[in-house]
Design a protein around this nucleic acid. Structure first.
Lengths: 167, 167
DNA sequence: AGCGGTAGGTTGTTGCGACAACTGATGATG
DNA sequence: CATCATCAGTTGTCGCAACAACCTACCGCT
């Protein structure tokens, strides 16, 4: 087979990355489930809404930013709606669109879940790395995203902090 | 709240890593599903068996190496068994143990799936990075695993290629 | 031998994501 | 102004993973 086997160093990087891919999401998701009763993806949705004007965003835009397919987002919003954290409202602008909007309980839930989640991210991702490695990681992840998301579908999200001016 | 917000650079690295965490597994899994009809995890199981003597491994050992819980592995092996790629045999050694062993079809399936999968890994992970970045990635992932897998439960797997002597 | 403890796996239930099919509403076109 | 295409989102079905409960065979101990 014309499989130009990877070098030992490449294999090492890949195998370790694979392990991270397996373990890290579970670690972060587990913390949120245990401590706040929401999934990491639900947290992400709430967080994105909280950063939007009025705490509301169109479903399609929200899906794009959260890297979710429309069906997936629809299901998630339905769950959040059932729990009273989010509500669907007809979009104020475009006619055939729907906005998801944070409710009061949604804001409260996010506020109470945030510290623990941020702490988990620090613990598992930021703290183990040197400042230099943090920047290296940003560059590496950026390079990978160039292939994974060539259309830059979600570029708006992950390029927001490019070219850091502060700290 | 005593949440010492992350710096802009840390946020940038985290947000990009998160996007990779979301997209990369889907990309790799999708390729294998389309081209070979198996999931990436099933591929991993077959690959690990193929590297073991006799193409067989104890369930518990296999679970450890694949970072899977026993229930998960049991289900996966059952699926593979149903498709004739793997068979369960009583462990030759320890009495109350079970080995999973690759069948002829299993070897064949792995052989035919490997080139495409390796190519996908190259395309999405190795090729976008410089040699230097590959090593940085190995170091970074290693640091994260120090927290994620403190007991080194699966250390045997991802340290196998440490301290590269060749290439 | 008999009895509990434990190692090693399996099964059953639940919840989430993927994919595909569908619905409803807007906009274009002759 | 009637029809058709398209956009935005939802619903329904299926497969997989998590978690917990369970089951059975071995082992040690007396």
């Amino acid at each position: 087979m014309d499989t130009p086997a990877m070098t030992r160093r490449q294999l090492r990087a890949w195998i370790r990355l694979r392990a991270v891919l397996e373990l890290l999401p579970d670690a972060l998701d587990g913390q949120l489930r245990r401590d706040s009763g929401i999934t990491e993806f639900e947290y992400l949705v709430l967080a994105m809404l909280s950063e939007a004007p009025g705490g509301a965003l169109r479903m399609s835009e929200l899906a794009r930013q959260a890297i979710a397919t429309p069906p997936r987002l629809s299901h998630v919003v339905s769950r959040l709606e059932r729990r009273g954290l989010v509500e669907r409202v007809p979009s104020t602008e475009r006619s055939r669109a729907t906005d998801a909007r944070l409710t009061g309980d949604g804001w409260e839930q996010l506020r109470s879940a945030a510290p623990g989640h941020v702490a988990a991210v620090r613990q598992h991702v930021v703290d183990p790395l040197s400042d230099e490695q943090v920047d290296q990681l940003a560059a590496i992840a950026g390079a990978l995203l160039g292939r994974l998301d060539p259309d830059g579908a979600m570029a708006g999200t992950y390029t927001r902090y490019d070219d850091p001016a502060s700290s």
